[in-house]
Amino acid sequence: MDVITRSIPECHGNRPVNTQIKQRIAENFSRAAHSYDNAAVLQKRVAARTMLGLPAQLEKKNAPNQIQRVIDLGAGTGLHSLTLADRYSDAMITGMDLAMGMLEFARQNAPDHPRLSWCSGDIESVPFQSNSIDLIYSSLAIQWCGFEQVLSEVGRVLKPGCSFVFSTLAEGSLQELNTAWCLAGERDRVNRFDRFEAQKQTVARSELIRQAFSLKAETLYYPDVITLLRSLKALGVNTVLAGKHGLVTRRRLDALKHAYEPLRQPEGLPLTYQVIYGVLQKPF
Rank of each mutant, 00 (worst) to 15 (best):
S81I: 05
R15M: 10
Q57D: 11
T249V: 05
Q20W: 05
D112E: 10
Q201E: 15
A180V: 08
S7G: 02
H113M: 12
A212M: 13
P64T: 02
Q20Y: 02
K216Q: 10
A204V: 02
G278N: 08
I93V: 09
C162S: 12
Q175A: 13
N38C: 14
V17R: 15
E171K: 04
T77Q: 11
R264W: 09
S167F: 08
A170Y: 08
D254C: 02
R195Y: 06
D86H: 05
L73S: 00
T239P: 14
Y222H: 12
R107D: 03
S163Q: 06
A204G: 09
S35T: 10
N18R: 00
Q274G: 12
L54C: 13
L140N: 14
N65M: 02
L135K: 01
A141R: 09
E267K: 14
V275F: 04
I25W: 13
K61N: 08
Q66H: 12
V275S: 04
G246Y: 06
R49T: 14
E171C: 07
P283M: 05
R69S: 14
C182M: 13
S120N: 02
S89N: 14
A99H: 01
P223E: 07
Y137F: 06
S132R: 11
A85N: 12
Q265N: 06
S89Q: 15
R107L: 11
R31D: 06
